[in-house]
Design a protein around this nucleic acid. Structure first.
Length: 752
DNA sequence: TGATTAGGCTTTTTT
DNA sequence: AGCCTAATCA
């Protein structure tokens, strides 16, 4: 069990007793350590599988860990809890929901749902959406919850008018959630903590059960998750005034956390690097073990990564090393524009295939923002390079998918107003805004739920007969479906919903070609439900809904080079060549690929323009760069474009400062210096000198007589210009397409 | 009164 | 891509 582990890894596996922090540099074999530690606990320390709780952040990581533990210990692994923070909390909350005043089948609201609910609340409070944007309120409430601040404390500490309004909205929002029998993502963590604190016997139960608690990616924990872990392992050793370490009883569980402060990239959603930096202060008898040998990358790649990350201040020094040799140099390329950049990537993948036998499946392309994937897709389609975009416009965010899920959620929980109001008039059945408002007013006055209001719509004043009839038909339909929902498994129920509501018929009869793919998506969702039933024939509708709402994960990573696949386990895709993987840097975390293209290395793109003014955020961007670089096993490419058209307006971005932080001799620049004047010009420019004054992206300026090219209208000539900078409106004569007035900042148009 | 359409706005990263 | 609003249609 200890074979093939280096001394530090071995030590981490057999460590016994006090809290353990494993500082695991990128590619240092941390999953290997965690899985072996679990196996060791079972084999040598007499731990029972049910006493083990291993927490990860993504479903993907959980699944992978589970599989690898399964290989080591066999079917016993089934009794262990290896899951995400959110899944673990849901599992606890389902059992204890009654104590908190929620039904055990409570709905789970994702970000879009909670934004919708917040919008309803703001409208109710008569807030001007311009001055008090619901999205922002929703985000701020999320932040408060991550800090375990409830609406009362928020109200107490509110100073400004804005903060008071926010606290009020928070309160109303939370009331609506409770009435709907729903929890948002942040509630899952916060309410579990509340549960443990309000009911010590519940906390005690789980504390007794989980003798071993392991937390992966500890640097990504937020305050709520941090507190949850503390509650779970039991109050731990405290340092007294004279510096003695006193233990509070012997019943605390063994805690083992793994993380790397340099890979913390989720501060924007409340993660605090503090939790890992101060682990030793939080747990005074803690032990720290550093894993610095990297088994993934060549030394050139690691040297680049080390050089970049070393620029971050207040960082504990760490030095990754590899015994795999220097490897090829990093290849740099300065493209004329984003199309040229994508073309370079496509050609290079072809060349690698010819010269080195590299398959597309071994290649990944990373970018900073989801929107950047479009150009790569266009070029890859044109050149016939097979690819797959991971993340981006997600399946579960598609309108039709959300509609069908909303129906199912209403059937599982009629109190779920957000879902109910989403589908009340989908497909169109003659229940308009006015009718909806009437029912709502009626329900509020009668202190009944919106659903009950619909059932008693006859009593609601001011409803037109036509609307009333539509409502009656709707409630009859839902009631009928509800009765079926008891006995019918999810897939069949979903199909039933599509047919009986006319949703399927509407799409089938539609002329719009897009509706065909909508149908496909719906069938896909039904297929997911069928898979769910196959995996667990006893599975309920509530369980199915829970699974899909917690899998907001960018899951479908193609085989080939992706993931930490144990040797000898190479996925079969490698024979067929697999496909190139496209994803954001954030979703790339935890993965590795033989060949990595790191694109868009421009100040304003990566690092993102929003981070340039904030040293803290800039450090996070740098960690993101570190994560990106360390994904590469054999070959790393860094590319940038001299001109990039974002929102139509071309911007001339200087080279990313991160490029300058890589030692010169590690990069082999492939750009032909004669090729483009722009490339040369922007190379020498001082980084970030400009982005400050324009407050972000510069907008091209137009003058009458300028020749332009527009994505849709083609070539044209500027007739006149009205307004300045980002507010400029340009009148352009496109010949055959006529004259158009366009916003300079947004039109997909370039100056020639 | 509800349906339909056009236009504006949005994009940093995500469980 | 989808949501929101306003304006117009039926």
């Amino acid at each position: 069990m200890l074979d093939g582990l280096n001394p530090q890894q071995r030590e981490a596996v057999i460590h016994h007793g006090g809290p353990l922090l494993i500082v695991a540099g990128a590619g240092s074999g941390k999953t290997r350590v965690l899985t072996h530690r679990i196996a060791y606990l079972l084999a040598e320390r007499d731990a029972r599988p049910s006493e083990i709780l291993a927490i990860t952040f993504t479903n993907k990581a959980a699944r992978e860990m589970k599989e690898r533990v399964d290989k080591l210990v066999g079917p016993r692994s089934a009794a262990m809890w290896v899951m995400t923070f959110h899944s673990a909390c849901v599992r606890i909350l389902r059992r204890e929901a009654k104590r908190l005043g929620f039904p055990s089948g409570f709905s789970i609201y994702d970000q879009a749902d909670s934004q919708r609910l917040m919008a309803m609340v703001c409208r109710e409070m008569d807030l001007d959406p311009k001055r008090y944007p619901p999205r922002s309120f929703s985000a701020q409430v999320s932040n408060l919850k991550n800090e375990l601040i409830d609406y009362e404390s928020a109200a107490d500490r509110a100073g400004s008018h804005l903060e008071k309004t926010l606290a009020e909205a928070y309160r109303a929002y939370q009331r609506r959630l409770t009435e709907a029998g729903a929890m948002d993502f942040d509630d899952l963590i916060m309410l579990t903590v509340n549960l443990f604190q309000a009911f010590p016997e519940v906390a005690e139960h789980y504390r007794r059960r989980f003798r071993h608690v392991m937390v992966d990616e500890y640097q990504d924990t937020n305050h709520a998750q941090y507190t949850l872990v503390r509650e779970l392992v039991g109050h731990t050793a405290v340092k007294t005034a004279d510096g003695d370490v006193v233990r509070e009883g012997d019943d605390r569980s063994e805690l083992c956390v793994v993380g790397d402060a340099d890979q913390s990239i989720y501060a924007f959603r409340g993660a605090t690097i503090r939790n890992i930096m101060e682990f030793e202060r939080d747990y005074p008898d803690a032990r720290t073990i550093m894993l610095e040998q990297n088994y993934r990358s060549t030394q050139n790649i690691l040297s680049a990564a080390n050089a970049v990350i070393s620029r971050n201040e207040s960082r504990k020094p760490k030095n990754l090393w590899s015994d795999q040799g220097a490897g090829p140099k990093i290849v740099g390329y300065v493209a004329d524009n984003e199309h040229d950049e994508a073309m370079f990537v496509a050609q290079e993948v072809d060349k690698l295939a010819d010269d080195e036998g590299v398959t597309p499946g071994q290649v990944a392309v990373f970018y900073r923002t989801n929107a950047a994937s479009r150009v790569f897709e266009e070029i890859f389609i044109r050149t016939g390079l097979p690819y797959k975009v991971v993340g981006g416009v997600r399946f579960y965010e598609r309108k039709e998918v959300r509609d069908l899920l909303a129906y199912l959620r209403v059937l599982a929980n009629p109190g779920d107003v957000v879902s109910l109001r989403r589908i009340i008039n989908v497909p169109k059945r003659g229940i308009g805004d006015r009718a909806e408002a009437m029912v709502e007013a009626f329900a509020t006055r009668e202190r009944i739920s919106f659903w009950e209001g619909l059932l008693r719509a006859e009593e609601a004043p001011g409803l037109a007969t036509r609307s009333l009839n539509a409502i009656k038909e709707f409630t009859a339909l839902l009631t009928e479906l509800q009765e079926k929902a008891e006995g019918v498994p999810p897939a069949a129920l979903a199909e039933d919903v599509l047919v009986s509501t006319g949703y399927r018929a509407e799409l089938e009869n539609s002329e719009d070609p897009q509706d065909e793919s909508r149908l496909e998506n719906l069938d896909e969702l039904i297929a997911v439900a069928a898979e769910f039933e196959e995996a667990d024939p006893e599975g309920t509708l509530v369980q199915f809904l829970e699974q899909v709402s917690l899998v907001a994960d960018a899951d479908q990573i193609p085989g080939g080079g992706a993931g930490v696949v144990p040797p000898g386990e190479r996925a079969p895709e490698s024979t067929s060549g697999g496909v190139v993987t496209l994803m954001t840097l954030h979703t790339a975390k935890g993965l590795e690929f033989p060949v990595v293209f790191l694109t868009g290395l421009e100040d304003g793109v990566f690092p993102h323009s929003r981070s340039l003014g904030e040293p803290k955020e800039l450090e996070e961007e740098r960690r993101l760069a570190y994560v990106g670089i360390t994904r590469a096993q054999q070959r790393l490419y860094v590319t940038r474009a001299a001109v990039r058209s974002s929102w139509g307006a071309p911007s001339f971005n200087p080279a990313s400062r991160f490029l300058a932080e890589v030692p010169r001799d590690l990069i082999d620049w492939r750009t032909d210096p004669e090729k483009s004047a722009w490339s040369a010009a922007t190379t020498r420019r001082e980084p970030a000198a400009r982005s400050r004054d324009t407050g972000g992206r510069p907008v091209a300026s137009y003058a009458p007589g300028d020749r332009v090219t527009h994505d849709k209208f083609g070539l044209g000539t500027v007739v006149s210009v009205d307004g300045m900078a980002e507010k400029a409106k340009v009148k352009v004569d496109f010949g055959a397409s006529g004259e158009k007035i366009l916003m300079a900042a947004y039109a997909p148009m370039e100056k020639l």
